[in-house]
Nucleic acid binder design. Structure first.
Lengths: 162, 162
DNA sequence: TTGCTCCTCACGTCACGTGAGGTGGC
DNA sequence: TTGCTCCTCACGTCACGTGAGGTGGC
């Protein structure tokens, strides 16, 4: 006789085990509950929080969005796909727009970081030349900005460190 | 008669103009001075702070490193290229290592973000299929995780939003 | 019952935000 | 002198960190 898995009672985790799996800690989870960002699925009669395994995916999304520089109140908004009209069309439209928003943020951020890598590369190139030069950057020559050899501005990342 | 530009007295900016150019604000600059991250080049006798134009490049680097998740004390360390032995070789070695550190951080972060984009893409693909499906995710079906049509786990980013 | 996990305050911290009240400098 | 910019406290805030003291549940 095959037993139907009980889908209406998915596995629940206590806060410690859930935090470990989700890569976070107890204080953060309690704080997220306090601000309404992530509410446990239930509580024991003694007050113990119980989380769904799948809530770890919500946590991951929060971490991703935080890494992109969003504040928790904005993250609440972006992830509140269950608020609003309850039609299937409306619900799915909110999901789609949340995913699109994240993709935009990711693309923009990647472009930014690639630009920063190019600037680092440019600085490396100039640094090679500086190593062959006699002048040592100090306050007397405004830390070699502009470069006494070429008269040009230093790459930003060298100017920052000289 | 040509006049030698006075390199020992580069243009100095008051805090407001400097903040505007560097894309920051007065409070942040005062805080950075307090913790020793960015000290003004000089002060007027009345106490007004004066910054070098080139210090904006230092600020930019601080912002970049903050965006990569570093704390200010770590940023102090990474950017303290003027501390240590004062030989040219030592100084340049510290510059090089600071640039390498940043490049590592940038590459790792870009890889991470690209992975996140792929996950978003994967979620979009599944969402297309879900739109053709009759089942509506709710607490009775554990928000469609696992998918009642395929039996497979949902993409993380759908599970997070369903 | 023991031990480990969890609970709720509640104060501390980092990186600033935001006035209050006063002074500098073209 | 007027107006704008700057000054130094100093308290507030966001997102937690870190105990203190007490209870739950296998």
């Amino acid at each position: 006789m095959s037993v139907q898995p009980n889908l209406s009672e998915p596995k629940l985790l206590k806060i410690g085990e859930f935090a470990r799996r989700a890569g976070t800690n107890l204080r953060t989870l309690r704080y997220y509950e306090e601000i309404g960002l992530l509410t446990p699925a239930s509580r024991s009669k003694g007050g113990f929080r119980f989380y769904r395994e799948s809530d770890a995916n919500r946590l991951t999304m929060v971490q991703t969005l935080q890494g992109l520089g969003l504040h928790l109140d904005r993250i609440c908004e972006v992830m509140s796909t269950r608020n609003g009209d309850t039609t299937k069309a409306g619900f799915f439209a909110r999901i789609r727009s949340a995913l699109e928003e994240q993709d935009r943020l990711l693309r923009d951020r990647i472009t930014e970081l690639q630009g920063q890598r190019e600037r680092i590369d440019y600085a490396f190139g100039k640094l090679q030349e500086c190593e062959k030069c006699d002048v040592i950057p100090d306050s007397g020559n405004n830390f070699c900005d502009p470069c006494p050899a070429t008269g040009q501005e230093l790459p930003q990342d060298l100017s920052a460190l000289f």
